[in-house]
Design a binder for these strands. Structure first.
Lengths: 137, 137
DNA sequence: GTTATTGCAAACCTTTTGCATTCTG
DNA sequence: CAGAATGCAAAAGGTTTGCAATAAC
């Protein structure tokens, strides 16, 4: 999605293009993965005054527009990332806390099984697997 | 694990067997799935005075002992369940919020793939798949 | 009797909300 | 200019902590 495209999509739905919204999207893009707090910090590198509540409201909006998604990689805070780059499965090591990614094909069997057996349409983008990485087991 | 067994395990580690601890474990068992708040409510059906902080401390202890585990099924509160009965994959429907379970064999391909390709030892007990159930898609 | 555990209250952290002000279209 | 979006402050969850009183062993 180009910059112009999502500006138009915002306007088409009666939303407005603001510097804050552009900065939040930029921050998510740059960080790859980020909690609201981390995204806020990143945004503030460029624009000092931005409030954390704006970050929350913007993430909610971007998620509604389908531009970002989130998963729960750890105990507290959700982690946001670009929906376009979400085509992977998250791995979280309970030993070192390291977060990794793998190609989604590995989950194909699970996805197909859920669909065939239960008619459940699984969302790979939100799939997070907890366990222990090779160095920690 | 029998009742006597875990009482002995508690004592062996210098912990004490208290009515509150027994009630929390009972509540988790009865509820199947439960947030700390729900578990607290269940416990209070039997013993009125039990404090929420005791629930949190007890869940932490039971988790350390390997008797319960938790996952994040939704935004806010974590969900606890018996580790012994955790042999299933959680399903969460983003349409109706319904929480389901399926046999873990469906995830076998994924588990094996992660192991063979990355040496990552996945924990099926914490696997939660988000998506849409048959009635909501 | 010793000391782990509890209840209570207050602190803490993250997220949400109400409202006056500011800025986009 | 109309009204959407922001910043601010306060409220609202959910969770943790310090401490005196209580209860397990």
């Amino acid at each position: 999605m180009t910059e112009t495209q999502w500006h138009e999509e915002l306007r088409a739905k009666g939303y407005r293009v603001t510097p804050q919204r552009q900065l939040v999207l930029e921050a998510v893009k740059d960080l790859g993965h980020g909690t609201p707090e981390e995204i806020c910090a990143k945004v503030r590198e460029t624009a000092r005054g931005v409030n954390i509540s704006t970050i929350y409201r913007t993430l909610e909006l971007l998620e509604e527009l389908g531009m970002v998604t989130h998963t729960h990689l750890s105990h507290g805070a959700p982690t946001y990332h670009l929906a376009a780059e979400a085509d992977h499965v998250h791995l979280v090591c309970r030993g070192c806390g390291e977060v990794g990614e793998v190609r989604p094909e590995l989950a194909e069997g699970l996805i197909r099984g859920l669909d065939e057996e239960l008619g459940f349409e699984a969302d790979v983008h939100h799939l997070t697997v907890f366990g222990r990485c090779s160095s920690c087991r």
